[in-house]
Amino acid sequence: MTDVVRLDAVSKVYGRGQGAVAALREVSVAIPRGSFTAVMGPSGSGKSTFLHCAAGLDVPSSGSVRLGGTELTGMDETRLTELRRQRVGFVFQAFNLVPSLTVVENVVLPLRLAGARVDQAWLGEVVSRVGLDGRTGHLPAQLSGGQQQRVAIARALVTRPEVVFGDEPTGALDTMTARDVLTLLREIVDGMGQTVVMVTHDPLAASYADTVLYLADGRVVDAMTAPTADRVAERMTRLGAWV
């Protein structure tokens, strides 16, 4: 099992001088291919900055970020955009669907934007995997929140990305719907060999992952394997003390 994402001594500082804020401090993490990793921490711990740097959405102040065998450091925005479009999938708390497009049109949108051919067999498998058979002609307004997030997950998968990054992907969903979406994320790791990295504040969501990384004050202060919701919640209560 090789690493699909690797951060080496990554720091991110916003601002300059006395107003400078260090969002990440010397973070080194390796994300194995075919794994499900949750990233947790209190508000302001650096979770979103970690995700943005790992995904090539933001540029570290120092350190190295690699996606597969590709070094992201030093890439200009045009090359980073191409890399994200071809090799990275994103699922956010907001579904970010285009209201005037059908389910299938939303799913294939990244391919259309890239001028890439749609592999109909793969599209059919992705739609089936996320449980949207029979819904492909619907508009987003005709779907529930959980179904809309399934469309977003299918859109993230259709380009066959090396890694899918999720930023609070169940944050806008009720508890039962969130469980369905988390089960789906677990299934695409186990059944499709996909790699998922998910920022969350929810111990239940984190319990679906293989590993939980804990951030505090911009540093990775702990990692937990085989997490349960209770263990994750208990660890979160002690993060302020880093113990």
Rank of each mutant, 00 (worst) to 15 (best):
Q142A: 14
V10L: 06
P169W: 01
G63T: 01
L139G: 11
L215C: 04
K47E: 08
P42S: 12
S207W: 03
V13Q: 09
Q18F: 08
P203R: 00
V65T: 03
T159S: 14
S64W: 15
D180A: 13
P32D: 07
D167P: 11
Y208A: 05
K47T: 02
R16E: 15
L185C: 05
S28Q: 08
L101E: 13
Q120H: 15
P227W: 03
P99D: 04
V104H: 13
Q142D: 15
D76K: 10
D167Q: 02
K47P: 13
F165T: 03
T200E: 06
L143P: 15
V13Y: 14
V181E: 07
R135L: 11
K12H: 12
G69E: 11
L204R: 13
M1H: 07
A121I: 06
V5I: 04
F50G: 14
G15C: 02
E162N: 04
V199S: 07
L7Q: 08
E77F: 09
F92C: 05
Q93F: 04
E77H: 07
A154T: 06
R85P: 12
L101G: 14
A20E: 10
S11P: 11
P140N: 01
L72N: 09
T81K: 10
R16G: 10
Y208W: 08
V21A: 10
S100Q: 11
